[in-house]
Amino acid sequence: MSEIGDIRSPQGGHRRTVILRHVGIFVSLISAWEIACRLGWLDPLFFPFPSAILTGFWRLYVAQGNIWPHLGLTMAEVLVGFVAGSAFGIGLAICVGMVDRLRRYMKPYVVILEATPRIAIGPVIIAAFGFGWTSKTAIVMLVCFFAPFVNTLNGMVGVEAEKLSMFRSMRASKTQTFLKLMLPSALPEISAGLRLAMASALGGALVAEFIASNAGLGVLINQYTSTLNMASAFVCVLTLSALGYFIFRGMEELDRILVFWNDRDRTARVGERRKAAWAAGKGGKS
């Protein structure tokens, strides 16, 4: 992702000129849009003026400030659902992964669950949990459950048989095998699963709010579009883009912390710290 998102030119070039060029293109795109609207080529009813979107930001965030409660609610749904759902997914996968027999019989069900569009369960869950925020959180939980579950399971199944037999030949206990072998080798995949889950969590919460709700960003977008107040709807969508971006960056950071051995600098730093801790633990004698 960072690879394709790299906007610097390989020739080097001054950082400032590169950024200027990008900003220039962005500005010309936006002004082309604005001009097309003003000339009447684009129907401003459906494609709002960029300037209208800007004033919409001011109105929604400052003048009226009515986006804040909706934003807070959606964020709460996403966070609670994500933490609960992924914890549940990873926990269940670990339980299943430690038992050989269970793992074998789980596979077909996992495949079916994988094929089902998760968000599609929305109406069923709303019918079960009602229209309040619990049903939305439940949907986010469900959406966030699968990716960590499947990835954790895959990661634990994918441990090399040779390493396992080495651990066995050294008489490692089940806990040791899990903590020192299974978990570390599954961590990259678990982290990838968490990232997938977080990416879909926001979408899940929104869809749940679209289906039936009385508060949240999804409701706000629905209200604005159904009254053809497109500029405000775009403000909400752009807010979501920003949220999505921060979530994405946050998850990348989490990945760097969890799977520190994939990044050379971090490996060195963690190694130093562990060495220091070990030396302190031994009282400096060694």
Partner: peptide, 15 residues
């Protein structure tokens, strides 16, 4: 493309 990716596409449904 990345901007489009970080926006939950499903949020665009009403629009």
């Amino acid at each position: 493309a990345i901007l489009l990716n970080v926006t939950p596409g499903l949020a665009l449904t009403p629009i």
